[in-house]
Write a protein that binds this DNA or RNA. Structure first.
Length: 447
DNA sequence: GTAGGGTTAG
């Protein structure tokens, strides 16, 4: 990993910089069957799965097609379909790369399914994958999935069993454990773990310190975070843009926005180039305080300094515009992003927009955004589905509400009581054929 | 970015 931006001037001398090799890779010829299954998966992942399982094209039974579809299915949270396809891939001895498993484990992590991640990991040997699988990267991905979902004991137990998989933990494995320890037991306990692993020859990295600095900063201990920054420099580990962003975040959350802004300019003198993430910290803080003017000014300043906004920047803008009730303005930003940057909206952006339109009671626009979201293979959270169902029902749009309900059921998400209540109320009170509709609605869930 | 390079901090 690149710890420092290339060619940084540190004030005293230039440090040698590891440059990432940028070998020009020949773009590979796209495989027609894969392109085909990808576009099929984008419109209807379940139908694409049926095609693969129905043996209608032997080219679909190779690794690229299966892994592309697995990824789409996982992204759309269609986990039962993921399981069916995995079963197929395993039983048909389709050759698999290890990266497929680490990718899926990441999805299980994000969907708060750590135990599915764990069982997938243990099933890797039953797949047709190259010797040396699971790799350390996949192992670390699993450790992270466990720690992120509060399964610290399982993570530590797994860590102790790493030799069973012929793996030797690296700095990343240790950092993940340290993250768990920080969150569960706090700074003092994590510091103890750090001392222990230092004795075992572990070399802390800039990430190690960034985690510690972030933790104390979130608790308002700005003094300790500055001490940690000095300590890392003494050890020859140099703060990067993320380190400064984390310190700036600590300052902002203690109400010291101006000091954070000053630090963003000072970091350049310390030899560290300002990056998007630093602007992101300031913009988020402005958004939280409702200072949308300053937020827009920061955006203009970034552009002036030739720092191109990315998807994270757009997420921040959309999030806080929506939170401050400027949903139409947020929608303009979403459109501008697609037109000017050619950047596709991600799950979070769609979710913020659907929630935003629900919040200002524009359920029609909310439904339109939901459709765009589903069409691009993203899956809303159940709360988003719920508020849309409630809203559509209260507007008397029972058919639309039922459509949303069905989409939700396909993804095994539970409908909250409030949404059901609104729907039932609309059906019973506002329509004559209430009883028929109600039994129709209940049939799929009771059956 | 998840086929084709891309683990941990944000």
């Amino acid at each position: 990993m690149l710890d420092r931006a290339p060619g940084i001037r540190t004030g005293l001398r230039r440090f040698p910089v590891r440059k990432r090799s940028r070998r020009k890779r020949q773009p590979k010829e796209p495989i027609p069957a894969v392109v085909d299954i990808k576009s099929a998966a984008a419109s209807d992942p379940s139908a694409a799965l049926r095609r693969i399982l129905s043996y209608d094209n032997p080219h679909l039974h190779d690794y690229p097609a299966c892994s592309a579809l697995l990824y789409r299915l996982a992204r759309a949270r269609l986990f039962p379909e993921v399981d069916s396809l995995l079963l197929f891939v395993c039983s048909q001895r389709v050759p698999c790369r290890d990266s497929l498993f680490s990718g899926l484990i990441r999805h299980f992590d994000r969907a708060s399914l750590p135990h599915k991640a764990l069982s997938l990991f243990f099933s890797i040997p039953s797949f047709n994958c190259p010797p040396g699988s699971p790799s350390l990267q996949t192992f670390n991905q699993l450790l992270d999935a466990l720690v992120n979902n509060g399964c610290d004991d399982e993570a530590e137990a797994l860590f102790d069993r790493c030799s069973e998989f012929r793996l030797l933990p690296n700095a990343i494995s240790y950092n993940i454990l340290l993250k768990g320890r920080l969150r569960r037991d706090g700074y003092i306990s994590a510091r103890k773990l750090l001392d222990e692993i230092l004795k075992r020859g572990f070399c802390p990295s800039v990430v190690t310190y960034n985690m510690l600095i972030g933790f104390v900063g979130r608790n308002g201990d700005l003094g300790i975070s500055m001490d940690l920054k000095d300590e890392m420099i003494r050890r020859g580990i140099y703060p990067n843009a993320i380190t400064y962003a984390i310190i700036m975040e600590g300052l902002c959350s203690s109400g010291k926005y101006d000091a954070a802004k000053k630090l963003m300019f000072d970091m350049e003198y310390m030899g560290c180039k300002t990056r998007l993430v630093n602007y992101g910290v300031l913009m988020s803080n402005c958004g939280r305080r409702g200072d949308l003017n300053e937020m827009n000014e920061l955006l203009a300043e970034m552009k002036k300094r030739n720092i191109k906004p990315d998807d994270v920047t757009y997420s921040i803008l959309i999030n806080y515009l929506c939170a401050n009730g400027k949903v139409d303005e947020a929608y303009k930003v979403l459109v501008e992003m697609q037109v000017k940057e050619g950047c596709k909206p991600n799950s979070a952006m769609y979710r913020m927009m659907v929630d935003g339109f629900c919040k200002i009671q524009n359920f029609e626009k909310g439904l339109a955004l939901l459709n765009a979201m589903l069409a691009s293979g993203h899956c809303p959270r159940s709360e988003t589905f719920g508020s849309l169902i409630s809203g559509l029902a209260k507007d008397g749009r029972v058919n639309d509400a039922c459509f949303v309900l069905e989409e939700m059921e396909k993804r095994m998400l539970c409908t909250c009581v409030g949404a059901w209540y609104s729907l039932v109320e609309t059906v019973c009170v506002k329509r004559d054929d209430g009883a028929d509709l109600l039994s129709g609605l209940l049939a799929p869930t009771l059956g």
